[in-house]
Design a protein around this nucleic acid. Structure first.
Lengths: 200, 200
DNA sequence: GTCTATATTGGGATAGAC
DNA sequence: GTCTATCCCAATATAGAC
């Protein structure tokens, strides 16, 4: 038996990880199965041993990434809610995130308009991810500061919008200004978090 | 001479208008030239009498729409800056806008992630549109309230993010909550604008 | 300026060997 | 499970008639 269960699972995970990166960068139609599988060190035909279609892969890759962000996972011991949220914001609103150099690009920001041409299952996966982001931030923030649901919704919309727009800009100075503005405002609204670089 | 200059210009304008709507709805790769020209009551070949390529059309359509929004044009006489800005916000952050039922969908929100796979000229057109939006809002708001550049940048990012996310959601109640949250926050930050429905 | 016909390329999915 | 070869459709762009 030349291919073990282990091996199949590892390959599957590799495909999910790589394909999310590519979809985030180029959108659903901008990625060909050839590109993708070559990037995984495999060939086109192999995909269909793991996923039934390109759309199915896209959905699974979105869910895979959504479950593996810092926001979706418990905070480490020893950090206060405020400290942890502050770190999350700093990561999210960073040049590295915008440039896709994180291995944890946010699907919400990177796929936002791409979702509109996808099927219902994909839209639902996206909406779930969005809800989870709101829930996570609400959970941290409400433990130490007063904020209502509208505060949370407006902050996440700003964060997602900021990263989505920043990604389109060609000039790093503009990107940095935008990120700094958003850091300041999000910090204010989430109970007075401050950043070293927020006046940049 | 069966085709006058008038006629050509009118056709060109029709193509720009229709194609923007389609691109906004389905993205660059989601629109075929066949779809588009059929929508204009023409056939594929005719496109190339007006534009040299699909990408060129996309860029021109973006610029065409960007020049024809309420934000890009002078406010009507008789409205105060604050009143006018309030109306602009209400329009922008409306269900009609999200659903694309305006004939003035905002390219920034509708094309956000689509821009990343386009050429430099298109990115530049998009960035110009973005800058114009910031400039217009800054112009109105700074006439009657204190706000710095970071306030403006964070408000526009929130507005664009809100519409982009709202568009992906399948449930109208979620959309309305998000819009209401963003109206309230934008209103606050832009000198105490209030809306009837902002507590919805 | 617009049409129809066509050249050409590219990409999703399947078949069958290993 | 992965490979290569192939089927098949779709889509951009051009050619040439009107």
């Amino acid at each position: 038996m030349p291919y073990t269960k282990e091996h199949k699972h590892k390959t599957r995970t590799r495909i999910l990880d790589r394909s999310f990166r590519l979809f985030a960068k180029k959108g659903f139609k901008g990625v060909t199965i050839d590109d993708l599988m070559r990037d995984c060190g495999l060939t086109r035909g192999a995909l269909y041993a793991h996923f039934s279609s390109k759309a199915e892969l896209y959905r699974e890759a979105l869910e895979f990434r959504a479950c593996n962000t810092k926001l979706a996972n418990p905070k480490p011991r020893g950090a206060s809610n405020k400290q942890w949220l502050s770190l999350l914001l700093e990561n999210y609103l960073s040049l590295k995130h915008v440039k896709g150099e994180h291995d944890l690009a946010c699907p919400l920001a990177f796929l936002a308009t791409d979702i509109n041409t996808q099927n219902k299952a994909i839209k639902t996966a996206y909406a779930d991810t969005y809800e989870n982001m709101n829930t996570a931030i609400r959970g941290y923030a409400s433990s130490y500061t007063d904020c209502d649901e509208q505060d949370i919704l407006s902050v996440t919309a700003m964060m997602i919008g900021t990263v989505a727009i920043a990604r389109t800009l060609q000039d790093n100075k503009s990107i940095e200004s935008l990120l700094a503005a958003c850091r300041r405002e999000a910090g204010k609204k989430l109970g007075g978090i401050t950043f070293n670089s927020s006046t940049l």
